[in-house]
Simulated scan of single mutants.
Amino acid sequence: MPHPTPHLVRLADEIARQLGDHLAILPPHEATQVIARVVDPADGVLGDVTHLVSVSSRFAKEQAERGALPAEVWLALGRAANELDSIGDDLDDHRETLQHVSDRAHAGPAKPSAPVPLVVRRRR
Rank of each mutant, 00 (worst) to 15 (best):
R123G: 09
P28L: 07
W74L: 01
R66I: 09
V45I: 08
A42D: 05
N82R: 10
H94L: 09
P41R: 00
P115Q: 12
S102Y: 01
S56M: 14
V9F: 12
G47H: 03
A68I: 06
F59L: 12
D90P: 00
S86Y: 07
P112L: 10
I25D: 13
R121W: 05
E30S: 12
P41A: 04
Q63M: 13
K111D: 10
L84D: 00
D13F: 06
V34W: 02
L77F: 07
A68G: 05
L52R: 12
A110R: 09
R58N: 12
V9K: 04
A80P: 01
R79H: 12
L91V: 00
I25W: 10
A81S: 11
V55N: 10
I25L: 14
D13M: 06
H7K: 07
R79E: 12
E83M: 02
D21E: 09
R58V: 09
R104I: 07
V49I: 15
R58S: 15
R122Y: 15
L118N: 05
V34R: 02
F59Q: 08
H51W: 13
R10T: 12
V49P: 03
D43C: 03
R58A: 10
G44V: 00
S54D: 12
K61P: 03
A71I: 08
A105T: 02
V34S: 04
D93Y: 13
A31Q: 05
D103W: 07
A16Q: 06
E83K: 04
L46M: 04
L19E: 03
M1W: 09
K111M: 15
P6H: 05
E83P: 00
L118K: 08
P109E: 13
R58L: 15
P6F: 06
P70C: 03
A68V: 08
R37N: 08
R121P: 02
L11I: 02
H94D: 09
G67P: 01
R66T: 06
R104M: 10
G78R: 11
L84C: 02
P4W: 08
V116I: 11
A110I: 06
V119T: 14
H7S: 14
N82Q: 14
V55D: 13
H100Y: 14
D89S: 08
A81F: 02
L69V: 05
A16F: 04
I35L: 12
P2N: 06
S113F: 13
P6S: 05
V120M: 08
G67K: 01
D89G: 14
A12R: 04
I87H: 06
L19T: 06
L118W: 09
